[in-house]
Design a protein around this nucleic acid. Structure first.
Lengths: 339, 339
DNA sequence: CTGAAAGCGCTTACAG
DNA sequence: CTGAAAGCGCTTACAG
């Protein structure tokens, strides 16, 4: 099958290339008859405008890139997929083209954000999964293309942000645990270089007097090991609850507690509400992030930024979900809390 | 920041545009000195070749598209993400460009595969998630661009395929259940329109004398409902084991069994080994698909098809994993469902 | 080893 | 309402 171009349609209809282009771009100033003729001919020939040519010749490009960092690190965490699906769905409703780009620290060192955008004629971008230590994170601080960063706290007025209010959510969860009677709450954080980790820790610290914070790299395995090590050096009986900065780490802690036979004594809460959270035993009390809304606003805010130059910093509602691993009310009556 | 083009590099170096192009494409026939000059100037200017222009002007294009169908239907199933990550990683090692495209039945009706490939100058494509009822499935039967289909059985000599040997795996699992003493095995399938469902059912049927097959649309919920309904009309005591065509359905059945208080009586096996499989209680006996290898071969075979015109139909090794939900040997003393 | 020029498939002022 | 022509940023024969 040979490639069919705008010329073929022009030839077939006896019109000029310009006219064909005009009907395909809905330029208004065309007779109904030519529209019909062109549409028909294009259909018969199976013509589709070539996007590379379009990009190259057009002044006003409309291409939005979604950049996801470290997409395949953790089995069981489908968050990148939810964002991908959400962004695609929301972009489908607009006339922007979609470009996906998966990166990692190695690729970041080889090609800068600016280079990528230049190479692909990117109009604006949505970016997620960056850690503070990533080259792209630094680059974003002086970046000047419309950008919305998910779960990131960029000190650049030109970069919009969308995320859960991690600090508030963590604060609230800590308070609820406290109110439920868990007085001595330990916080198991991920890494110091993740924006969300810092925000969650801040919320926890606000809510307690004597903060106890440890790190387990957002890893189930490391969380499990941490708990076992901790048990050797300290008395877990002094701890009433462990609030982990991610569900995966919460699951790791529960696994350790099963080994240590501490399961019934200490409450555990997580963060994210990944799919696993509701399937494990005990099911996880956690903070649910609304990835659907996050993707939706990422797209909306980015387009708003591109078209109206308005930059937004948005928090998307979260939900605190009480399950078996930690009680959130004194009176054992299960209630859902919304924010 | 203004866009820097090949012209700027030419100007800065005093060379012609052609020469710049040559060093960027490693054309050999260039003096070491110009290479150095160009490389330096490009770096200083922050030049990156524009890929749209490159595509448009170049004869030999190298763009591989990954098309994923219905990416965001089932929460908890990260398979599309694993494929995406795998394909990206493997493509990164080559000099092919990567294009991602998420589709669904609605979009398939709006834009044909051929149109998409024409629009984007696609050299070859990897496609996954299609059901037999999908427009693209039909289109693939007469498609003539290099293509590798994952988990699909296309009756087109020009389309390569990569998948688990679903029939053999299902056959083997059924046999292992039988050998372990589960004589009366029921098969709970997904949909009749999924290639993998047909293959798995075939394997099951080969292994049993009196096939009993039901469908639950690959849905956890429907599987749960099915089991409850089945219990009303039939005697579950006659069934020794249920082999579900997906882990999610297996989990649904187990949920129903918990409600029906049948948990200890009937073994359950799944297929896929999704993350949940090892976390639920009882953990799931299942067939593990090697998505890493599947993605790897999809890329390899596609490139082989593009460059050497060799079409492959490949089965990737699977692994049968025994966990708590079903015993797979008679001798091993292991009670069902022990923690 | 290097340059001038045509061309890839479109869009978009500019005329008419 | 329509066409001729320049141009987007590259690549690639063709000369030299």
């Amino acid at each position: 099958m040979k490639k069919v171009t705008i010329k073929d349609v022009a030839l077939k209809t006896g019109l000029s290339v310009s006219s064909i282009s005009r009907v395909f771009n809905n330029y208004g100033d065309i007779s109904a008859e030519t529209i019909k003729k062109v549409t028909l001919a294009a259909k018969e020939l199976g013509y589709t405008p070539n996007s590379a040519a379009k990009q190259l010749s057009s002044k006003k490009k409309k291409i939005i890139a979604l950049i996801l960092n470290e997409i395949n690190v953790t089995r069981g965490v489908a968050m990148p997929l939810e964002i991908l699906g959400g962004v695609v769905d929301n972009l489908d409703k607009t006339d922007y083209e979609f470009v996906f780009y998966a990166t990692n620290s190695k690729k970041q060192n080889q090609k800068s954000l600016r280079q990528f955008c230049n190479e692909r004629d990117i109009t604006g971008l949505i970016i997620q999964g960056l850690r503070i230590s990533d080259p792209y994170y630094q680059e974003l601080e002086t970046f000047d293309l419309p950008t919305v960063a998910i779960d990131l706290d960029i000190k650049n007025e030109k970069v919009g942000t969308v995320s859960t209010d991690n600090t508030k959510a963590a604060f609230e969860m800590t308070q609820l645990l406290d109110k439920a009677g868990y007085k001595n709450i330990l916080f198991l954080n991920g890494t110091k270089t993740a924006t969300v980790a810092q925000a969650r820790e801040a919320g926890y610290r606000e809510a307690v007097d004597n903060a106890q914070v440890y790190y387990a790299n957002f890893s189930e395995n490391e969380a499990c090991k941490w708990a076992i090590e901790y048990a050797k050096m300290n008395d877990f009986n002094k701890i009433d609850a462990i609030f982990a900065a991610s569900d995966l780490m919460a699951i790791g802690v529960i696994k350790a507690f099963r080994i240590l036979d501490l399961e019934k004594n200490i409450a555990v809460a997580g963060f994210d509400d990944i799919t696993l959270a509701s399937y494990v035993t005990p099911s996880l009390t956690t903070v649910r992030q609304d990835m659907g809304k996050i993707s939706e606003y990422a797209v909306k805010d980015l387009i708003c930024q591109i078209e109206k130059d308005e930059i937004k910093h948005r928090f998307v509602p979260y939900q605190i979900i009480e399950r078996e691993s930690a009680r959130l009310t004194t009176d054992k009556v299960k209630t859902k809390f919304e924010a």
